[in-house]
Design a protein around this nucleic acid. Structure first.
Lengths: 232, 232
DNA sequence: CGCAGCCTTGACAAATGTCAACAAACGTGG
DNA sequence: CCACGTTTGTTGACATTTGTCAAGGCTGCG
């Protein structure tokens, strides 16, 4: 396998402190593949054969039940996904599909578990990564249970603004129908929610969002670090 | 500190395989306390000073935002809680209060992190515990986003039935207002939801629940191991 | 006994979803 | 480059779900 992406992966928190030899073992065992958009990479319920790392493009984690589907997360470079299923050797709880043309590294779960048993620094890095994932998931639960869909959208926009460098104008990273699903609402409801935020200075044109007065929007959204902070 | 509970804690997956010496260090550093009901043990946003373990009684994890409050989990003996905040040395994302008179072990987070750095088996146990917590949280997200409140209640009852040994009659473990909050609905809505399940053979008297025909209820609830299974 | 908190019920309001229609954006093949 | 068909986004009308408020019954406890 071409190893040009090794340095990119090596600097991930997950791999940064592990033994070089173990890292090489993982890389030797892994595959790199390019996928077109809309390819289902994994399906919920199946055994976790590979730990996945997105090198470029983007991947959606989603889940279905009783004919309904919901977007749980969007993964962007460079990060891993479904680490928990890998270390527990348990079935995937979510499915994954590419959104764009994407380059993905597949590390056999078996090898990940083997090195996890051997490399203590790797095991520690996994702890921190999982703790982060868990806490992120708790934040999402709080967002869902404590806020209306309008409040979720408002806070999402404020988070995106921060991500875009604090600029008062930025582009949505995902299409609106996926955003709606991510926020736990229908596309129609999202459409109306954008309009409902107009009195707070939010205007939308395509996927371009403008926030005229951040304070005004914040007064409505009431962002809270214990829900919206994405760093700790 | 009285060490009569040490064996109970020692057998927890989290501590079962660590070095005896390290376990003793943790136990020596820790406190055991009895709390009356309705005591707020920790408050969201505060630094994570202690890893908590419930020896007896029960503890509710909850969170507030903008005047609203929601129940995120109920912890029963014998299990730990807020492990993620402890290992990340980050603020609690949830508050905790005793529901009953409860006996709690408090292990200083500092000590937990120190032993985590030293004891590889302990680090590995933490990985598995966090992976479990994370996956449980993903299940809850799916439950919330993919199901109506009536469906959530129906599946909750089926899970409780399993927990009660499959008997067609069992007691609710928490009061209804808390159950409502846990399921993401109001007490009034829960009251009506119970009635709405009557056509599927569910009858309720106080906190006693009878499920006349499990198949009937399952046909409505459509339980799914990727949401409702509590073992993997 | 009497108070306080929980649960239930009814009437109503707000939030959200559904369906249908249409417009706009996008991609593909000619 | 354009024409076409498909998908996405929007809007309106309406249905369903869920929440809110107020009242009353029940229960447990001092």
């Amino acid at each position: 396998m071409l190893d040009s992406h090794h340095p990119d992966i090596r600097v991930l928190d997950l791999f940064a402190n592990m033994e070089e030899e173990n890292f090489q073992t993982l890389m030797r065992a892994s595959y790199v593949q390019n996928f077109p958009p809309q390819i289902e990479l994994i399906t919920e319920g199946e055994p976790s054969d590979f730990l996945h790392i997105v090198i470029s493009g983007s991947v959606e984690l989603f889940s279905k039940w009783n004919g309904r589907e919901t977007c749980v997360a969007t993964i962007r470079p460079i990060s891993s996904f479904i680490l928990a299923a890998t270390v527990k050797n348990a079935p995937y709880l979510m499915s994954a599909r590419t959104l764009d043309k994407s380059r993905i590294v597949l590390i056999p779960s078996q090898n990940v578990r083997a090195i996890f048993d051997e490399d203590n620094n790797f095991a520690r890095a996994i702890v921190l990564e999982l703790a982060y994932c868990y806490r992120s998931s708790i934040r999402k639960t709080k967002d869902l249970k404590l806020r209306t869909s309008l409040e979720r959208l408002a806070n999402y926009l404020l988070r995106q603004q921060i991500r875009a460098g604090g600029d008062d104008e930025f582009n949505l990273q995902i299409e609106k129908r996926r955003l709606a699903s991510y926020l736990g609402m229908t596309p129609e409801n999202l459409s109306r929610a954008f309009k409902a935020l107009k009195p707070y200075g939010v205007t939308v044109d395509g996927n371009r969002v403008m926030i005229r007065d951040q304070n005004d929007l914040e007064k409505f959204a009431k962002p809270n670090p214990l829900i919206d902070d994405r760093t700790t």
